[in-house]
Design a binder for these strands. Structure first.
Lengths: 248, 248
DNA sequence: GGGGATTTGTCCGTATGTATC
DNA sequence: CGATACATACGGACAAATCCC
């Protein structure tokens, strides 16, 4: 035997120490929870982790790489390892991969994502329509004016679009909502970029649909707002299906 | 110099070969896409990958571990590596960790997840209420009868609950919907288990709420169904908040 | 069931790039 | 600029799991 000593492996012997890799991953996560480390806090170095966990550097690194993929830790080359933001980037990676994986019809996988986003936003706008303050309506107004300006120039405005939908739901005080929507948005546009789809061919129409949503919100007309949102998604779907047909 | 020869490193020298790790991850994903590999298909062995990618085994393994965490590949000890299901387990892991990480008030993070689930299901049941067939209503009936049986015995039935909500939306033909709902459900119950919360204290009431949803669906009463679903979530919230207070 | 081949899991030692001070 | 601490990457070796004959 070359490397032995099994300092702290006794506890796992009864369990059969199955899948040491996943075990180390859980132990590092538990370490973060136990020490109440916040996102951005420094983690022990790899050397310290191999000592405290009693495993080799390779095992520690594989576990850290897995946690990095989940955005649970953040590794800065030559500097250190830190607690991550636990964002939804893993969801984006997974959904993007899954969608690209269905070569025959990405419309299916993409349509599913779009349907979920539509259901979400239709329900969310109902709740937000009642609690939206005048100040928030004004800031939405400013965003839409930038849209219309781009629309007049015939330029697409994916980032402003994203900004609008994010600003719509800030008043809910729900951090998860904008992150989920942003995740879906990222998947959609990443797939579009890989597939080489064209940009929005009619930005003025898209801007008008957003304007429609805002006027409904100003009137506190929940039904109208919901229908305007649904129309907006019809537009998105039309663009996507047209793009897939155009490419084929 | 011990390991030299740098066969295929020349191409990266100009780029500065930044972040080889993440690069390998993308190359393996691209390999799956290029070869049209389906979930369950075998991947090249680690040795073949280090040859074809021109990197060491450690680097290959770290990339594979990251992809494993995303459920993009599946590694079987002593057998081989396979294309994974690209499920939403990364989302479950991330949200669970994030929720447990907020020790002071998990009610906040958990409340956000619950709100998203509620918005989703309220919107989904509207769409499903119109297209549900009699056969599907009957299968929902069977599930609810099992609930009521458990309810009379005073036993909790988390699994049947999950089954009901999954069966509700099969007619949509959207694979992502049940997976997302299952993910949220898993986060909720995993956190509950870690926190040591009590089980459903009034299963009969929970069963009755589900019965209410079904009767509304049978009557094709969309508004009623939506309200019944909302009531159901009020019950879940009440249980959760009561549990957190009880523990504290 | 036994044995050998294949494949992943773990470990060690070392050299190198990178960021901070 | 040098020193230091850290992550990155490589090669080689052995252990453990699985499969097939």
């Amino acid at each position: 035997m070359s490397y032995g000593s099994n300092l702290s492996a006794m506890s796992e012997d009864l369990v059969g120490r199955r899948h040491v890799g996943g075990q180390i991953r859980r132990e590092i996560m538990q370490l973060i929870l136990d020490r109440r480390l916040r996102p951005g806090s420094p983690l022990p170095t790899e050397s310290e982790l191999m000592d405290s966990l009693g495993v080799s550097r390779n095992s520690v690194r594989e576990a850290l790489k897995a946690l990095q993929a989940l955005d649970i830790v953040e590794i800065r080359h030559g500097y250190g390892t830190y607690v991550g933001q636990a964002s939804l980037t893993p969801l984006v990676d997974g959904l993007t991969f899954r969608t690209l994986s269905q070569v025959d019809d990405d419309t299916h996988a993409l349509g599913e994502i779009l349907q979920v986003r539509e259901v979400l936003e239709e329900g969310l706008i109902r709740r937000v329509a009642e609690t939206l303050s005048d100040a928030e309506l004004d800031s939405l107004e400013a965003i839409i004016e930038r849209m219309e300006e781009k629309g007049r120039a015939g330029e697409a405005f994916p980032e402003i679009d994203r900004e609008f939908h994010e600003a719509l739901y800030t008043s809910l005080g729900n951090e998860l909502v904008p992150q989920l929507l942003a995740a879906f948005w990222n998947v959609f546009h990443r797939v579009a970029r890989v597939r080489g789809w064209a940009r929005d061919p009619a930005p003025a129409v898209t801007a008008r649909r957003h304007r429609e949503i805002l006027t409904a919100l100003r009137a506190r007309d929940v039904t109208h707002a919901q229908r305007a949102m649904a129309d907006h998604f019809r537009g998105i779907e039309a663009r996507a299906w047209q793009a897939t047909l155009g490419v084929k």
